[in-house]
């Protein structure tokens, strides 16, 4: 999952073209994603898993890095 998230960010939604994204790169602080980007990413996650992300879960803790997103997903896997 981690790889496909990174690929999706790199190919589709990152604000700038990036060579690599590390699991602990701060997606927002580094300006990799904006609000539209994150919404597309959530759509991507929801499409590929059974998870429905409620807005309350859209926090720094859950979504600031790819690693955290993966951790969030594994916590919520159905």
């Amino acid at each position: 999952m981690k790889e496909s998230i990174i690929e999706f960010i790199k190919n589709e939604i990152s604000n700038k073209r990036l060579e690599t994204i590390n699991g602990d790169d701060m997606l927002f602080d580094l300006g990799i994603l904006d609000s539209l980007g994150i919404m597309r990413l959530i759509g991507f996650i929801e499409d590929r898993s059974q998870i429905k992300v409620p807005f309350q879960d859209l926090t720094i803790e859950n979504f600031s890095t790819v690693d955290r997103i993966v951790a969030y997903m594994s916590r919520h896997r159905v």
Binding site: F28, D34, S35, I38, L58, I60
Partner: peptide, 11 residues
């Protein structure tokens, strides 16, 4: 507020 970015929080 729990916003992902400052911009989203300000919005």
């Amino acid at each position: 507020i729990g916003s992902l970015t400052t911009d989203m929080g300000l919005y």
